[in-house]
Design a protein around this nucleic acid. Structure first.
Length: 577
RNA sequence: GGUCCGUUAGCUCAGCUGGAUAGAGCGCUGCCCUCCGAAGGCAGAGGCCAGAGGUUCGAAUCCUCUACGGACCGCCA
C-alpha cells in the first residue's frame, strides 16, 4: 500500500465529484497534481497543490477551489481535517487509525514498499564493464555498487531487470595484456624480463604466467607472437574475468550475463548494425573538423566512415571506421546496443565511469537511431572517488601498480561499509572515502547508525517476553500508539513506498540510503524518549497489549530497514559487536 | 574553443523533478547518565541557495549569460 498514492486517488475522485456538481469545468489535466508530505509538520500530514494547479486552466480562484475540495475530502473517514492555507494549499490531517493500517501492511503484506512502476517491463542495467586487463579498482567499485543497487531498486519497483557486463575483449588492450602475461610466462621459466611502456607490470599477472606455463609447458618459448598471441590472449582474458568475477562476488554482485565484445567480430553483427544505420541515411564518408582549441600536433584531415550522430543531438558526427578501414571502438558498441534493442528490452541503463562522459551523447544517439527512439537509454556516470586515510589524501598511481583495488577496500572495511558509503552520495558528485571514518562506530557514520537501529530492534524482540510474530503484532490494537514521537515513526514508514517510487523513477538509489538514515534517526529518537518518559519504552511490563502495539511499530521499522538495506546490498545486522 | 557535471550553514552533504518560514551530520554554545544498549540525548546560534537577468500565482529547483572547480574532446578502449 502506498498511502500517498491512495490519498492522491482520493483527491482525484473528489475533483470528479466537483466536476459532477458543476463546480469545476471538465477535462482539466491532472498530471501536475501532487500529494506530498509538507515540509513543516505543523501544516499537517499531507498537502496537495491541486487547487493551485487547476486554478489557471479553470479560470478560478485557487482558494475557492481549495475550499470546495476540502469539503469533499472531509467526508472521507481517513481525513481528519482539510484546511486551506496560503495561496491555495490544502493541508490534510490523517486520522490516527490510518497509520495503524500502514503498520499492519508493513508487517503482513510482503509487497509493502514495492512499486508497480515498472509493470514488468524488461530493463537492462549494464554496469562495471571494466576492461579485462586487471583487478577492479576503486573507481570501478563505485560504478559496480551503484549499478547493482540501481538494478535491485528497479526490481523492487517491478521491472524485469537484467544485469549485464560488457567485456571489452576485442581491442588492442587485450594484446597488451597477452604480451604482459607472456612476460610473466617467461619469468615463470626462470628468465629475466623487463616491463616496458605498453605492458602491465602488476603482480596479479604472476600467477597467470605460472598457470600458462603449467598449461603449455615450454611450447611458447623462443617463439614469435604469431605463434602464441591469440591463444595467450584468450587464456589471459579468461583468467582476468575469473579475477573480476571473484572481485564482484566480494561485494555481493552477481551478473546475469557477461557479453563479449569479441563475439561480435566476424559474425556480421557489426556490419548489420552499421547497415541498419546506413539504411536510415545516417552513415556517410566524410572528413571531420579538427577539434578546436588545443590542436593535436599530428592532425591531418582524413576521410572516414562516419555516423551522423548530430541528427540525434550529438555535437559532431562520430567515426565508426578508422581511415585504414578498421572498426573504431564505437562500432562494436553500436552493435552491442543494437543487440540489446533486438533482445527486446524496453529500457536501457548504462553505468559509465566519469572518464566516459564525452561518450554519452553518441551512445544515446546510436540507441535512439537504432530503436527509432522507442527504447530510452539513460546513462549514469559514476564520479571519482577520492581516498583518504587519517584525513590525508591517498595517492594512487596506476603506472607504479599502486592503485587501490576493490579487494583492498573490502579487506579493510568490508563489503557492507563499502557499499553503503558509496551509495550515500549522488552518482554524479565526487565522493570522499576515508578508510578511518567509514569504519567508525558512531552516529557520524550512517552505515553504523542504520545497522545499529536494525540490531537494536532485534535486541528488543529478543527480550520482549511476548509473542512477537508478525501476524500477532499486526492483530494487536495499535490505537495505543498516540504519542507524537510514535506517530512520527509511523509516518516515516508510510513514506517508504512513495520514496521507492521516486528513487526508481529518477534512477537514484542514494535516496534509499538517505531515507534509511532518516528512519533510523526517528527510531533512535523514539528509543531515547523512553529514557525520560517511561510510557514510551517499548517493553511495558505487565501490559502485553501495549507492549505488542509498540513492538509492532518498531518491527515495522525493522521490516523497512531490511528491505532498504536489501536494495543497497547491505546486510541487516542482527547484533552489533 | 566545445561538451558534460558540480557550486546550498565554518566543514561534509540532502533537498521528494516548480510549492509555504531551505534541512541533516560534524564543529560551536547550553543543559541531560541509578533509566529497555549514553559506542549518546535534548535545545540553541549559524544561509544573499556562486552572481546577474528571465519565465509565473510561486524558483535552490526551469531558461539565458557570467565566475569558479572537476571530467572529457580524431585514426586509445
Amino acid at each position: 500500500m502506498n498511502l500517498f498514492a491512495d490519498i492522491r486517488a482520493l483527491v482525484l475522485t473528489s475533483l470528479d465529484a466537483l466536476v459532477a456538481d458543476g463546480v469545476l469545468p471538465d477535462g482539466l489535466s491532472r498530471q501536475a497534481i501532487a500529494v506530498e508530505p509538507p515540509r513543516d509538520a505543523a501544516h499537517g500530514d499531507m498537502a496537495t497543490n491541486a487547487a493551485m494547479v487547476l486554478a489557471k486552466p479553470a479560470k478560478m480562484n485557487p482558494r475557492a477551489i481549495a475550499e470546495a475540495l476540502a469539503a469533499k475530502l472531509a467526508d472521507d473517514p481517513r481525513i481528519g481535517s482539510a484546511e486551506v492555507a496560503g495561496p491555495g494549499f490544502l493541508n490534510m490531517r490523517i486520522e490516527t487509525g490510518v497509520w495503524a493500517g500502514v503498520l499492519k501492511a508493513a508487517l503482513t503484506d510482503a509487497g509493502f514498499g514495492r512499486s508497480s512502476l515498472g509493470q514488468g517491463k524488461k530493463l537492462m542495467v549494464e554496469y562495471v564493464s571494466a576492461n579485462p586487463t586487471g583487478p577492479l579498482h576503486v573507481g570501478h567499485t563505485r560504478g559496480a555498487v551503484f549499478g547493482d543497487a540501481l538494478a535491485s531498486l528497479l526490481e523492487f519497483a517491478s521491472y524485469d531487470v537484467t544485469r549485464e557486463y560488457y567485456i571489452n575483449d576485442g581491442g588492442a588492450q587485450v594484446d597488451v595484456l597477452a604480451r604482459s602475461v607472456y612476460l610473466r610466462y617467461l619469468e615463470a621459466h626462470g628468465q629475466d624480463v623487463a616491463f616496458e611502456d605498453g605492458t602491465y607490470p602488476g603482480d596479479y599477472l604472476i600467477p597467470v604466467g605460472k598457470a600458462l606455463k603449467d598449461k603449455v609447458g615450454d611450447a611458447y618459448l623462443d617463439k614469435g607472437e604469431q605463434f602464441w598471441l591469440q591463444e595467450v590472449r584468450e587464456f589471459a582474458t579468461a583468467a582476468m574475468m575469473d579475477l573480476i568475477r571473484a572481485d564482484l562476488a566480494a561485494v555481493g554482485i552477481r551478473m546475469d550475463n557477461f557479453y563479449s565484445e569479441k563475439s561480435l567480430y566476424g559474425t556480421g553483427r557489426i556490419e548489420d548494425a552499421i547497415q541498419t544505420l546506413d539504411q536510415k541515411g545516417l552513415i556517410y564518408q566524410g572528413t571531420l573538423e579538427p577539434p578546436k582549441g588545443k590542436l593535436p600536433e599530428d592532425w591531418e584531415p582524413r576521410e572516414q566512415t562516419l555516423f551522423k550522430s548530430t541528427a540525434y543531438g550529438d555535437d559532431v558526427d562520430r567515426p565508426v571506421k578508422k581511415s585504414d578501414g578498421a572498426w573504431t571502438y564505437f562500432a562494436p558498441d553500436i552493435a552491442y546496443h543494437y543487440d540489446k534493442v533486438e533482445r527486446g528490452f524496453d529500457e536501457l541503463i548504462d553505468v559509465f565511469g566519469a572518464d566516459h562522459g564525452g561518450y554519452v551523447k553518441r551512445m544515446k544517439a546510436a540507441v535512439a537511431a537504432l530503436s527509432d527512439e522507442k527504447v530510452p537509454l539513460d546513462i549514469k556516470l559514476a564520479q571519482l572517488v577520492k581516498l583518504y586515510k587519517n584525513g590525508e589524501p591517498f595517492k594512487m598511481s596506476k603506472r607504479a601498480g599502486t592503485f587501490i583495488t576493490l579487494r583492498d577496500l573490502v579487506d579493510q572495511v568490508g563489503s557492507d561499509v563499502t557499499r553503503f558509503h558509496m551509495l550515500t552520495r549522488k552518482n554524479d558528485a565526487p565522493l570522499d572515502f576515508d578508510f578511518d571514518k567509514v569504519t567508525e562506530q558512531s552516529k557520524d557514520n550512517p552505515v553504523f547508525y542504520v545497522q545499529y537501529a536494525h540490531a537494536r530492534i532485534n535486541s528488543v524482540l529478543r527480550k520482549a517476553g511476548v509473542d512477537v510474530s508478525d501476524a500477532t503484532l499486526a492483530a494487536a490494537d495499535l490505537g495505543t500508539l498516540t504519542h507524537a514521537a510514535e506517530l512520527k515513526v509511523a509516518k516515516t514508514i508510510a513514506e517508504w513506498p512513495r520514496l521507492v517510487e521516486i528513487a526508481a523513477k529518477g534512477h537514484e538509489p542514494h535516496r534509499i540510503a538517505f531515507y534509511l538514515y532518516d528512519l533510523a534517526s526517528d527510531f533512535h529518537a523514539l528509543w531515547n524518549r523512553g529514557n525520560e518518559d517511561v510510557s514510551l519504552r517499548f517493553l511495558q511490563e505487565g501490559d502485553n497489549a501495549t507492549t505488542q502495539a509498540k513492538i509492532a511499530l518498531i518491527r515495522a521499522v525493522q521490516v523497512v530497514l531490511a528491505q532498504g538495506l536489501g536494495i543497497l546490498g547491505v546486510t541487516p545486522a542482527e547484533e552489533m559487536r
